[in-house]
Amino acid sequence: MITLFYLAGAIAVISTAAVIVQTNIVHALLYLILSLLAVAVVFYVLGAPFAAALEAIVYAGAILVLFLFVIMMLNLGQHTREQERSWLSARMFVAPGIMSALLLGQFLNVMSQIDQDMAITRVGVMEVSALLFGPYVLAVELASILLLAGLVSAYHLAKK
């Protein structure tokens, strides 16, 4: 199981890196799906099967399909690769790279001070559901309203 964690983590990192350097948007999307599925595996290893399932279904399934629809609508694809390549020079990565490296360095610096192990206990659907429909029921309602608002505004914005 522990090996699986590191393996899935490595796949997630590599495929995400591939997303941000891809010039073909459809390939990038596939790498993103791979990354999300790897993260779902990590969730499963960490004892959160419900989250892992949602990650696979909602993220990889629903959201990225939405992306795919839009890419098809905008008719992006093979022919935009040249343009993407011209936009993506190495120089573009310098400042963001330094910034992110600094941020990550600070993060690692803080993390290195923690030295705790976590015992993996399985937290199943039942516990999560008991919380969701118990103390957090109001938050769930709010989340549904947020989704409704997203739906309405997306409809409005995408309208001709």
């Binding site: 910034m99 600094l102 941020l103």
Partner: peptide, 16 residues
């Protein structure tokens, strides 16, 4: 976005 991240870096540095 870059300046935003720059500000974040500075704040975290100060915090550390």
């Amino acid at each position: 976005a870059l300046t935003l991240v720059g500000g974040l870096v500075i704040i975290v540095t100060l915090g550390v």
